[in-house]
Design a binder for these strands. Structure first.
Lengths: 120, 120
DNA sequence: TTACTATATTGACATTCTTCAATATATCCC
DNA sequence: GGGATATATTGAAGAATGTCAATATAGTAA
């Protein structure tokens, strides 16, 4: 979104590491923080937890009954998780059964694990 | 009464698992999402990455030179990371040298990995 | 058809987050 | 002391996010 190549400016004496760069590029940082941000909400964490408990058998009314927000808010977070590819839905008549897409969650976990160990 | 292991994947007639609860409590979800949120910003990730590269020798001017935001914004994110306990600072004269608090970052990493594996 | 139900969407509002110019603070050097 | 420099803080503005009442949609059942 913004050019990021300032040639190393002259640095006075003893301070500073001129030309130092992050190993994590701007784009990678964006992607990683998006991964972290989609998980970074208590209701979404609890939704994922409930879906993981009973894969394929959780309807919206279960979530609504167990969580301290109203139904439109549940639907909103479900949509975000679905757009992030972390969950899927199968409609059966009136009900919508949500499930964790384990392979997506697993690869997200791998990515986080890998990059967070960089920060050690 | 804590049914950690509800074996019946059968639903009672039509929909819904009455009385279903998340394993992750509201408080734990808050704490976890705070952990995730402090990492969920590209600039903060890049700051942590740069600090991890040269522990103890990164001043604000290095960060300012390498990252696409202005100095007050850098200071703002440094403050958030410091308040989260993830980094520390040692002032030397005019300069402020920031460093990763590895043990805090490590325990955060452990917590995240542990709880994320719940969601599998 | 009509009534009912589960979920999705809309629209509005409030809150939080991000950013930066301006300014303050602290330190060094002369 | 004054001037220069590195970083911190303030304050304001816009952007993003979270929430819910109202409404829409789509299915069931009589």
């Amino acid at each position: 979104m913004r050019p990021d190549h300032d040639p190393p400016p002259e640095r006075p004496d003893g301070c500073c590491n001129p030309g130092m760069q992050p190993r994590i590029s701007g784009e990678l940082a964006q992607a990683l923080s998006a991964d972290l941000a989609i998980l970074g909400h208590p209701i979404r964490l609890q939704i994922l937890d409930m879906l993981a408990q009973r894969a394929g058998h959780v309807c919206v009314c279960d979530l609504e009954a167990a969580l301290p927000v109203k139904q439109p808010t549940i639907s909103h977070h479900l949509k975000l998780l679905r757009e992030a590819g972390l969950i899927g839905v199968e409609r059966q008549g009136l009900w919508a059964y949500y499930f964790v897409r384990s392979e997506a969650l697993e690869s997200l976990r791998e990515r986080l694990l890998q990059h967070l160990s960089l920060l050690r």
